[in-house]
């Protein structure tokens, strides 16, 4: 009998295939079928939803509440909308400590204030002990559309800007879980990306937040939408020492690690340095870097190429199977 496997939630190829073959056909809705981070509804409204099952619910640099606001806010930001209103669905497990819930509610409120969104609708359910794990949260979000991502305008010579270091969120979760007996002083990068909104009015062509599947998976998806290959330079990708060391130790590639407060942007070549300078002025963009470009000379359409630190070229594939379950 066919059953749901963990792989289907990985953010990788298996999950994309699952959604495209099983979920989308069940509704046959053209807006849903676009599989964007948020759907643009009539009346310049963007709408999205996301559920949070992170384990543990508290981790260095955040908790499930902060994550539940920023994750949904960021989906709106990268789809070209100013986040405005969120709903809050709580599924609580019998026995969850009252203090933990209050802490999470405070954290939801703080994150909402910071991202300038209001929580205006909600629902609460309690399930028997053992039928859930402490707390699951769903947030849906509405935003005002200010731009539409324009992958069709992407041309060779356009640059890829990464807004910060990769993988801190994943590493913070692993450390908090005690997986692999890992100890590291690292904070999740969980943060709202609303500081990137002004760039939609400044020529920004495309943007995605780097969540499950990591940078490589997200850029692979972009190559499916444009007739040019992308090339990224391993040496230019900002990495913290902790993530670099942990990745080497565990044999994990940071290019596939999830973040919760980083984005990758495609910017027209001539605007790159201006945009980069302005991103770097924000504390959340201090480590931003130009990591590569849309290629006109090497590679073929559909290819995501990596120039390794040793100088070799290879293809990057989207994440295929589950790397780290319940990361968000």
């Amino acid at each position: 009998m066919k059953k749901i496997s963990l792989e289907l939630g990985s953010g990788g190829k298996s999950m994309r295939d699952f959604i495209a073959r099983t979920i989308v056909p069940a509704f046959k809705n053209p807006m849903l079928a676009e599989l964007l981070d948020a759907s643009h509804l009539p009346g310049r409204i963007a709408f999205t939803t996301d559920s949070y099952v992170v384990d543990p619910i508290f981790f260095p640099g955040g908790d499930i509440g902060k994550l539940a606001v920023n994750g949904t806010v960021n989906d709106l930001v990268v789809s070209g909308a100013v986040p405005q209103y969120l709903s809050l669905g709580l599924i609580l497990e019998e026995g969850l400590e009252w203090n933990a819930l209050e802490k999470i509610l405070r954290s939801l409120k703080a994150a909402a204030s910071r991202a300038r969104v209001e929580i205006v609708a909600g629902d609460t359910k309690v399930v028997k002990q053992g039928q859930g794990d402490k707390i699951y949260i769903n947030t849906s979000g509405i935003g005002k559309v200010i731009a539409k991502p324009r992958p069709k305008l992407i041309r060779p010579g356009d640059k890829l800007i990464l807004t910060g270091t990769l993988g801190e969120h994943s590493l913070a979760i692993l450390t908090a879980r005690g997986d692999f007996g890992l100890e590291a002083r690292v904070q999740s990068d969980c943060a709202p990306l609303t500081f990137l909104l002004p760039f939609w009015k400044n020529g920004l062509l495309w943007m995605r937040d780097i969540t499950r599947g990591g940078l490589a998976t997200i850029l692979s998806e972009l190559t499916e939408q444009i007739p040019y290959p992308l090339l990224i330079e391993e040496d230019e990708i900002p990495l913290s020492k902790a993530v670099q060391a942990a990745s080497e130790l565990l044999g994990i590639d940071p290019l596939y690690l999830a973040c919760e407060g980083r984005a990758v942007l495609v910017v027209p070549g001539e605007k790159t340095h201006d945009v980069l300078a302005r991103i770097k002025k924000n504390p959340l963009g201090r480590k931003a870097a130009i990591i590569g470009q849309v290629e006109g000379k090497i590679g073929r359409p559909g290819e995501l190429l990596l120039r390794t630190s040793a100088g070799g070229l290879r293809l990057l594939e989207p994440l295929s199977s589950e790397l780290l379950p319940r990361i968000c």
Binding site: E234, D235, E236, L239, P254, S309, A310, G311
Partner: peptide
């Protein structure tokens, strides 16, 4: 990434 590691530096590898 790994800019300081001479065992994978482009120039060293090239040579």
């Amino acid at each position: 990434m790994a800019r300081t590691n001479e065992f994978r530096d482009k120039k060293v590898i090239g040579a």
